[in-house]
């Protein structure tokens, strides 16, 4: 009897274990499993690669890279916002023949610079903000001079449920109140419903949280964290579900997640400016932030694979950046990045 039971239970467990991944989309999306991410890359990259390669190289104004000839490993660490972009480029690099390992750690911009400038462990640092003077100094202390490459722009999407028919746009002042002291929507604007605001915001470890606090509250975390009815999560899907699920909810996260769920959410214009490629490009959208990668000339000289990867990155970033869900940086910014690269490799 007992034995039979045991067999039954373990059988059931086995069957369930098989089903579990299908029932749990969130963890699957969170892992950087190559199988999950390979699919889109595989459909786009090989098809484009052959015909596009030659003209793109000459257009890019950078020396040609043949990923097949590149050997050695590359270590990247930093911003979780830049992570998907760096990963997409790394996949494309591998698809075109690079056989080494690219390790990309998604640990936040600050922690990324810590690795790059203090420990000197990483070759490239992902960042969703410009490097600080203090970080440049610590880099100098270990003999590194960070070189900045602008790779794109992210816009924070402020979203509500499509059922929230009373607003299309918010001002920065309204945002300040919405995510801190206001209890009901009517507290912000008497024309809005007198229903409690439900807030869904990224967790305190994320760069998105830091950026929002910096842009809206001037780096003071106190107001936003002491707000009532606030759900914080590092998992953006939790936020999407939360905002989608209630009429009186509001939340914010990276534009990429809005784009993935555009039909479930309503994005608000900020100060009357919509989050569009054009408005991000001309700096009129107030919640846009630059995305960077940083490296160092000595590292690039000692590890040619790093230089090759950055070269490849800058050549193809504008093709990948939209697919990942961000906006391309302006033509001038990309030219500067390329000029920085050429200067760093001494050409």
């Amino acid at each position: 009897m007992r034995y039979k039971l045991l067999v039954l239970v373990s059988l059931a467990l086995l069957i369930l274990a098989g089903c579990a991944p299908a029932a749990t989309p969130a963890p699957a999306a969170a892992t950087e499993a190559p199988a999950a991410t390979e699919a889109p890359a595989a459909e786009s990259a090989p098809a484009e690669a052959a015909p596009v390669e030659a003209p793109a190289m000459s257009e890019s104004g950078l020396p040609e890279v043949n990923p097949l000839e590149v050997t050695g490993d590359i270590i990247v660490a930093g911003s979780s916002t830049v992570y998907p972009l760096t990963e997409a480029i790394a996949e494309r690099f591998a698809d075109e023949g690079y056989a080494g390992n690219i390790t990309i750690d998604s640990i936040g911009s600050g922690a990324g610079f810590e690795r790059f400038c203090v420990a000197g462990e990483s070759d490239i640092s992902n960042a969703s903000r410009p490097i600080k003077d203090s970080e440049v100094e610590s880099c100098a202390a270990i003999g590194r001079t960070p070189i900045e490459f602008r790779v794109g722009t992210d816009a924070l999407a402020v979203v509500v449920s499509p059922e929230a028919d009373w607003l299309e746009s918010v001002t920065m002042d309204e945002l300040v109140v919405l995510f801190s002291t206001a209890t009901t929507w009517a507290d912000v604007n008497p024309d809005w419903p007198a229903e409690p605001i439900q807030r869904f915001i990224p967790g305190t470890d994320s760069g998105t949280f830091d950026y929002f606090v910096e842009a809206v509250y001037g780096e003071d975390e106190e107001p936003i964290l002491s707000a009532a009815n606030t759900q914080l999560s590092e998992d953006d899907n939790v936020l999407v579900q939360g905002v989608e699920g209630s009429k009186y909810a509001i939340g914010f996260f990276g534009y990429a997640y809005y784009q993935e769920n555009a039909e479930l959410l309503k994005i608000l214009a900020v100060e009357g400016v919509e989050a569009s490629a054009e408005n991000v490009d001309n700096n009129s959208y107030p919640l846009a932030r630059p995305l960077f990668i940083y490296s160092d000339a000595t590292v690039m000289a000692e590890k040619p694979q790093v230089a090759a990867y950055i070269n490849f990155y800058l050549s193809f970033v504008n093709e990948e950046v939209i697919r990942v869900g961000y906006f391309p940086s302006s033509a001038a910014a990309l030219e500067t990045a390329k000029a920085n690269f050429l200067a760093a490799i001494g050409q």
């Binding site: 039971l5 239970v9 059931a12 467990l13 089903c19 579990a20 029932a23 749990t24």
Partner: peptide, 21 residues
């Protein structure tokens, strides 16, 4: 019935979590 109950006990709790949500 008893084995069926035990199967219920063997369902991973993450599945129950999404069942709730």
């Amino acid at each position: 019935l008893k084995p069926v109950m035990e199967i219920l006990a063997g369902v991973p709790t993450v599945v129950y979590g999404y069942f709730a949500l």
